[in-house]
Amino acid sequence: MALFAILTIICGLLYPLTVTVIAHTLFTDKAEGSLVLRDGQPIGSLLIGQAFLSPKYFWGRPSATSPMPNNGASSGGSNLGPTNPAQIDAVRMRIEALKRADPGNIAPIPVDLVTASASGLDPEISIAAAYYQLERVARARNATIEEIRGMIARLGKARYLGFFGEPRVNVLALNLALDRAFARTGDADPR
């Protein structure tokens, strides 16, 4: 009984507190959630995906969280199985939304752009998924395709040594870079 109490205090209080102190000393930003600031205000985390729906932004992975997508307070996937008609309907609807935003695009859609992520908060998309949206974003921003492609190249990550990690780019970082490089067109921004 007393031993249980001793081990509880060590593992349940001393251990997490010690780790917190060390983590904060060494990696303050990361321990606090890798927040991104704009004009001094936190506008998200590099690790937590946000939903983007307008043509001028790159769209992230579909999210199955409720009530709204990319709900940070309630992570999770769709849990739909591959033979479930609901899963196939969901993919169909995502394809339609992408086509509506970019009717001229007839390229095959990369699979990660029409399937829900595991956490519902995936902050990244594949490079293929970014390329698929390239023309749409360039058009909406009055930018050249080369300019936008350069941004993807700068912010994207390749497979390390050809096998480690996946080719991907952070959606929030990419969209913030877009906003910085080009005027925030198309809507009246109160800020």
């Binding site: 859609i109 699979v111 399937t115």
Partner: peptide, 30 residues
């Protein structure tokens, strides 16, 4: 996935994407 294939979804692995069954998976893990 055969139905996604019919819907012209690109599921082939390559230099730019992991492909395959990405439902319920994170892109950084592929």
């Amino acid at each position: 996935h055969p139905v996604l294939q019919a819907l012209d979804v690109d599921q082939a692995p390559g230099e730019l994407q992991p492909g395959g069954n990405m439902e319920g998976k994170e892109i950084r893990f592929g």
